[in-house]
Simulated scan of single mutants.
Amino acid sequence: MFPDLIDPRYLRGTIDDLIEQFVIHWATFLEESFYPILKALNFFESLLINCPWWLIIGLVAAAAYASSRKISLTIGLTVAMLGIGLLGLWEEGIRTLALMLVCTFVAIIIGIPMGILMSWSDRFRAIMLPILDIMQTMPSFVYLIPAIMLFGPGKIPAVLATVVYAVPPLIRLTDLGIRQVDKEIVEAVQSFGANRMQKLFWVQAPLALPNIMAGINQATMMALSMVVIASMIGAQGLGFQVLQGITRLEVGRGLMAGLAIVLLAMVFDRITQASGKRAQAHLHTNS
């Protein structure tokens, strides 16, 4: 038996006390800070649910064609969206879509600037890499506990957990993309007197766009993979249908909801991948 060098009960109690004090002093402030995100999510969800189904499918088809310029892919993704409706899960799919898009948008707002800062500073990068490793490897249920303590069951902890899970690959790939920009090109721009922001927006960001798009693709897929866990803390949608299938032992309900999640993932994976490929092809054409 391993010797008891540290009393785990004391360590657990210390962590619990710290979290409890944090909740007492900061819960109200954090809840008010996240309220605009909750309001935006509810508005966006209501807007999508009240939109005609054919309009949403038309927008998805337009996005598929604009990103790929392929009729076959556009038709395939249109059929996938129709499949969600034919399974009788259109409203649940739209709720999941709204949660995924809002979480991806928040991840983009956080992830791209963080990736840029990491590419600028080796010291900041050395600090962030272990944090990103922890965020990606820590089981989701662990950081759901303080989120639920702060906000209670509902959509805010679901958004928080999803963003924490989805943002690391976007940060990493943004940092990687900017660091991989040819140094000779950067030096040439500097020789013309460009400052750091001009260098970023004129050269580094356009050349790193394929990597950034790959990061957005990964963030989108990881946000969608969290829908079942998010349903356990109050988020509605396809994940809640899967959860009901598990708790009620209804295989058909869980299978159909799982299939709808796969169709939704396929749609946005193909759109974001096609956007990344077009950005890369455009980059090679210009070079």
Score class of each variant (00 low, 15 high):
111 G>T: 06
216 I>C: 07
248 R>Y: 14
17 D>R: 14
100 M>G: 11
246 I>M: 15
198 Q>P: 00
114 M>L: 12
138 M>F: 03
38 L>D: 11
277 K>C: 01
127 I>Q: 04
276 G>A: 14
74 T>Q: 08
62 A>S: 13
178 I>V: 08
202 W>H: 09
106 V>N: 02
36 P>T: 11
90 W>G: 01
244 Q>L: 15
142 V>Q: 04
120 W>L: 00
66 A>V: 09
58 G>W: 06
16 D>L: 10
217 N>G: 13
231 S>Y: 02
100 M>T: 12
100 M>N: 10
211 N>K: 07
163 V>Q: 09
4 D>M: 04
9 R>F: 07
98 A>C: 07
110 I>V: 12
33 S>K: 05
203 V>Q: 11
63 A>S: 10
280 Q>H: 09
198 Q>C: 03
43 F>S: 03
19 I>Y: 12
283 L>F: 14
133 D>K: 01
30 L>K: 01
137 T>L: 03
87 L>K: 13
191 S>Q: 02
15 I>F: 14
181 V>R: 06
18 L>F: 15
95 R>E: 10
258 G>N: 10
97 L>Q: 04
65 Y>D: 05
144 L>D: 05
47 L>G: 03
59 L>M: 13
38 L>G: 08
118 M>H: 05
126 A>T: 02
33 S>T: 06
11 L>K: 03
189 V>G: 10
15 I>N: 00
150 L>T: 10
283 L>G: 04
17 D>G: 05
283 L>K: 13
88 G>P: 03
65 Y>F: 15
47 L>C: 02
99 L>N: 01
230 A>I: 03
28 T>Y: 13
274 A>Y: 10
122 D>H: 12
255 L>I: 06
207 L>C: 06
45 E>W: 06
197 M>W: 12
133 D>C: 02
220 T>Y: 14
276 G>W: 09
187 E>V: 00
80 A>Y: 05
139 P>Q: 04
247 T>V: 04
94 I>F: 06
132 L>T: 01
